[in-house]
Design a protein around this nucleic acid. Structure first.
Lengths: 203, 203
DNA sequence: GTCTATAGTTTGATAGAC
DNA sequence: GTCTATCAAACTATAGAC
């Protein structure tokens, strides 16, 4: 098995770093090529255009979470357990791919309309799946919120905000545990069983 | 009193719209000028450079909140009351200046180092003030979180995330009320007085 | 304060040798 | 697949007439 990163992957990694630091439109093909150790023109042997590089990054950061993170929602368990598992994998995936995540959030408007639509579709699907597990939690009387979609948007904003400030030396286990707490026991106000419903707990 | 917007203000509004839509580096001086109804060269009678336009937008969206929003933290009241008031004014300010807010969040890296430092300083100060009122709430046994700074960052990510998706016809009163709930009764797990502490309520 | 005209760079992308 | 050389276009910013 070959562990060498392909040239294509090297380009994507260098471009993501560059786009994150300077912004997509400010970063030039020559700069990206420099980081990889080749000349600007050689990039076009691997990608048809600069926008296709951005699209590859954005697609990876939206399709992979849909295909991998969402699997934990299909396993057996209560809505609380399944959502907790999703928060865990979501934040860990974000932490491992922090710059790519930041770029795909921030540079969405730089994509062609067709590519942007594809990316947005994945994001909306992810959002709906989060909404659905929240709705299931409400029906199971585990969660105490009114509007599952609004809660899903808030929760995703909260988690994705991490990509703006996360540092490499940050303790991810601690981050995950805190954010599970903020979301499941906090925003969604997980009910406590015998102690009564959320209405008694709050206000 | 003159209610006409100055040419300078018209430029800022048009530029913010343009930057929000296309991104700072992609938006050209000609396009901004077109929106205002003048030629590109005329912009330089009002701003020394394109970057100064961005700086004016970013500065307005960081200095004004510090000078105005934070006033509510100095009024009398419990930490819960003061933080609730801050969430209210923060979200309303964000809603009124949505595109400027989005631009100043997203295009921070396009500022010169000196300008970026100034903007970041305001943001950090704002963050510290939020942290402080959370810390006061913990001491008063109103809030049940461990790390006030981490909670402050999360709360600001949650609120600022709104600028990515808010639409003009959104019901702001409802938004404020939901987010106060998410934050004060949710993330910070406001204690309930006689019913016992957060330890009893959660888990 | 706005205009026309343009300087001076830099950009994304292509052609063709090797 | 990488290189050198280069094109055409777009950019920010300036000069100078009005």
């Amino acid at each position: 098995m070959n562990t060498e990163p392909s040239r294509r992957d090297s380009i994507l990694a260098a471009a993501a770093e560059y786009f994150a630091e300077q912004g997509y439109h400010s970063a030039g093909m020559r700069g990206i090529a420099d980081s990889v150790g080749i000349k600007g023109a050689s990039l076009y042997n691997h990608f048809g255009s600069k926008e296709e590089i951005l699209y590859a990054i954005a697609l990876k950061m939206t399709r992979v979470p849909v295909e991998e993170n969402l699997l934990v929602l299909d396993e057996t368990g209560t809505p609380t357990e399944r959502l907790t598992a999703l928060i865990d994998v979501h934040l860990r995936h974000l932490a491992v791919n922090r710059v790519e995540h930041l770029v795909s959030l921030r540079e969405l408007s730089a994509l062609t309309e067709e590519h942007r639509d594809r990316v947005v579709e994945y994001r909306k699907y992810y959002q709906r799946r989060v909404r659905d597990v929240i709705a299931a939690g409400i029906r199971a009387e585990e969660f105490g919120v009114d509007d599952p979609m609004r809660a899903a948007v808030a929760i995703l904003d909260l988690m994705n905000g991490v990509s703006w400030w996360l540092r490499d030396d940050y303790d991810i286990d601690s981050l995950v545990s805190t954010y599970v707490d903020y979301i499941v026991d906090g925003i969604l106000r997980r009910r406590v069983g015998v102690r009564g419903g959320a209405d008694e707990v709050i206000r």
